[in-house]
């Protein structure tokens, strides 16, 4: 049973085709990487999946339901969690409050005007933070966290909606090599344990080859390759347009 099926997706901006007839699937518990040159249409693809952009054509089925063109918050409520390329946490709040705000929203309590928000879903928030290893920093203001920790808070916030699918846009951008691997290892283990499908974009090939079950390669808006890490690594077209000579990632891993 597949979780997400995109079919025939297309999008153009002012006559320039950014994504042309792209289709793929993600199964529960599967970690899939979407890679390709800068400007290949990865972000456009992603933004159609998360609702930021409405596709010009094609369908996006989540568990059988077509979600193409729905607004981001509706898609979020259907069980799609996401993290952003540039970390987006609520900087004026404590770590715990970030998760609480998400939990309260998903529970439909965001219009409560009187009861204090401080205790509402506090335990649930702490439990989520424990899952990403951030429970001991729960009371810190988000504005003061180290970058790698912010990424983990974002993951906890994304998990607050009990997602079936996680969309992660360059989740490890700006992180040190080993932090990258640690974050993706955490994500992959959560995904497999809880049967969450993960789709992520990434330029760091060490991360991609270490954690992706399957890789999709986009170039100029089209899907040019798809397959296991080994197959993609050795695909001559992918090497020509994207991977290069292989000096910039651990060729032998």
């Amino acid at each position: 049973m597949t979780l997400l099926v995109a079919h025939g997706l297309r999008k153009a901006f002012g006559g320039v085709e950014a994504v042309v007839d792209v289709g793929f699937a993600v199964a529960p518990g599967e970690v899939v990487a979407l890679i390709g040159p800068n400007g290949a249409g990865k972000s456009t693809c992603f933004n159609m999946l998360n609702g930021q952009l409405a596709p010009d054509g094609g369908t996006i089925r989540l568990g059988g339901e077509n979600i193409a063109g729905r607004p981001p918050r509706a898609i979020a409520r259907l069980g799609v969690g996401r993290t952003f390329q540039i970390t987006a946490t609520f900087a004026s709040m404590r770590v715990r409050e970030n998760v609480q705000a998400a939990l309260q929203s998903f529970a439909g309590k965001s219009y409560g005007l009187w009861r204090s928000a401080d205790t509402l879903y506090r335990d649930e928030a702490l439990a989520l933070l424990a899952r990403v290893g951030m429970e001991d920093q729960a009371e810190r203001p988000c504005g003061t966290l180290a970058y790698g920790d912010l990424k983990r808070v974002e993951l906890a916030v994304a998990l607050a909606g009990r997602p079936r699918l996680l969309l992660m846009d360059e989740p490890t951008a700006g992180m040190a090599p080993v932090e990258r691997l640690a974050l993706m290892a955490l994500t992959a283990s959560l995904a497999r344990r809880e049967q969450i499908g993960v789709l992520f974009t990434e330029h760091d090939m060490d991360t991609v080859f270490a954690h992706a079950d399957r890789i999709l390669v986009l170039d100029r808006g089209r899907l040019i390759a798809e397959g296991s890490p080994d197959a993609v690594r050795n695909d001559p077209t992918v090497r020509r347009v994207y991977l290069g000579a292989g000096t910039m990632y651990g060729e032998q891993a």
Partner: peptide, 9 residues
């Protein structure tokens, strides 16, 4: 964007 992504209108 993040707020919308956790379902806040």
């Amino acid at each position: 964007m993040r707020a919308e992504a956790v379902g806040i209108d």
